[in-house]
Design a binder for these strands. Structure first.
Lengths: 178, 178
DNA sequence: CGTTTTCAGTTGCAACTAGCAACCTAGTTT
DNA sequence: AAACTAGGTTGCTAGTTGCAACTGAAAACG
């Protein structure tokens, strides 16, 4: 690996969003609960009997997911006992992560496609593999990729697609290459 | 929700590759170690000082990742004390998962882009967001997605890439969560 | 109305896991 | 040989997981 990158890399490994993400989702049952939520479950007892998770752990995990803004928690009007848990936008945003993990498990652990299958509603074909792509959609493999410091990044492609535009960080966006 | 899907869904939620994936990667430090490995670290002491993880936990996690075939472990020829940990193909295959999680953290937790940034070596632009796509590459949002049972899946698009399958077509599926 | 059932949790307690600091062992350097 | 390194292991404490049994409030039943 590039020595120029090596030393700063050291300092910056800490400064990563991964720990923050794992703070919210790093516990054992979190992804399982999330998956159940994606599959349309909304109530405590549903999660409990579905996942076979201990009740206290489930209560704790649900509470944490609510705290982190991944689920909302509301008593239902029709039946005040029933709590309705629902994915927020932030929670839904975890779908690619969950699918990537699941696909990896299918390919490298279980060896077969899990059910139910997530399909494109339009043609009922299974979704494609979650992949790393360039800003303009080319599939990238490990050989196409490089770790770069913010100064060496070309940020000019950031304003073409619909991902939010308040990227004020990182930017002495020097044209490093080309 | 559709009752026709509901009952089978119950039985099948267990039969998912997610638990298998979490068995390998679900522990607290696993993704952090993986990330360090992606950043080019190879040795015990590097991981240790980089991540600030306890030595016994690190030893245990590295051992587990090796057991699961995510890392290889080899004594170096030049210095028999030094152990060289290296990502296997299976380990590298976790890159999309790790990036999806990281990107989610950037967008929803820390709010800024972490460093170092993964860029396309060709143009030094940051990689695009990890997204769910159809078999032919269209970006799919939550509204485009359905959970379907294997019988209801159209598998005819499966022969462009290396995933195995055979099933026929029918009809009954359910919109992805609500 | 009182009783029973259901839902979503708590509480108490045992077993297991994470984390720190100190120690160990084989291989390497001086 | 003595000292040093890399990569662990061990002992101990603090926290987490998990089961089972209990609670409390809202709904359903008779």
């Amino acid at each position: 690996m590039d020595e120029k990158l090596r030393a700063p890399l050291r300092e910056q490994l800490v400064n990563c969003s991964l720990p923050a993400a794992l703070e919210a989702m790093g516990e054992r049952w979190s992804f399982m609960i999330l998956r159940a939520a994606f599959n349309g479950l909304h109530h405590f007892e549903e999660f409990q009997s579905e996942l076979g998770i201990a009740r206290n752990i489930l209560a704790n995990r649900l509470g944490r997911l609510v705290e982190h803004g991944i689920l909302t928690r509301d008593a239902m009007v029709k039946d005040r006992r029933k709590i309705h848990y629902q994915l927020t936008e932030k929670g839904v945003a975890l779908l690619p992560t969950m699918l990537a993990l699941r696909q990896w498990g299918e390919r490298w652990e279980t060896g077969f496609r899990a059910s139910p299958v997530l399909v494109d509603a339009r043609d009922r074909r299974p979704i494609g593999p979650i992949e790393v792509r360039s800003w303009d959609g080319r599939v990238l493999t490990k050989r196409d990729l490089l770790w770069a410091l913010p100064e060496d990044v070309d940020d000019s492609g950031e304003h073409g697609r619909g991902d939010d535009a308040d990227d004020d960080t990182a930017t002495s966006a020097v044209r490093a290459a080309e």
